[in-house]
């Protein structure tokens, strides 16, 4: 990967029940993710995605860009902004900011419906 190069886009449309499966897998059963009635009571449009689920998509996109070896992702820092929703496509995009012997830095973001739900994400990948 060279400086300025884009990593392959990752496009995922989480289905309506994805937050339930992620809740079970992660142990985070906050009702804003699994109970539409509760979510609406606290002013949300409906259930929202777990931020750490969206971060996992950012991790996937970067690992895939590095060739798929799970050791290639050394560090990932993200900021959560806005909220992700089920049943709408998420697009993860990244641009190589720096590439050298110490590793590769990729600026990444996750966007949904024009809303950047993960921004200023920085991934550090093993060299190569």
């Amino acid at each position: 990967m060279n400086e300025g190069e884009q990593i392959p886009e990752l496009r995922v449309t989480p289905d309506r029940y994805l937050p339930h499966r992620y809740a079970g897998a992660s142990g985070d059963f906050n009702p804003i993710h699994i109970d539409p009635e509760f979510a609406r009571q606290v002013g949300l449009p409906s259930t929202i995605l777990h931020g750490l689920y969206t971060m996992a998509l950012v991790a996937r996109a970067n690992t895939a860009a590095a060739g798929g070896d799970p050791r290639s992702l050394r560090r990932l820092a993200v900021q959560f902004r806005g909220m992700g929703l089920p049943e709408k496509e998420i697009v993860v995009r990244g641009t190589v900011r720096a590439a050298g012997e110490g590793g590769t830095l990729v600026d990444t973001e996750a966007e949904q419906d024009g809303n950047r739900i993960v921004r200023n994400a920085e991934a550090e990948l093993t060299p190569g």
Partner: peptide, 11 residues
């Protein structure tokens, strides 16, 4: 939840 970072060492 405003931000999250992980740094990985051994698998």
């Amino acid at each position: 939840h405003g931000g999250q970072e992980f740094a990985w060492s051994d698998l």
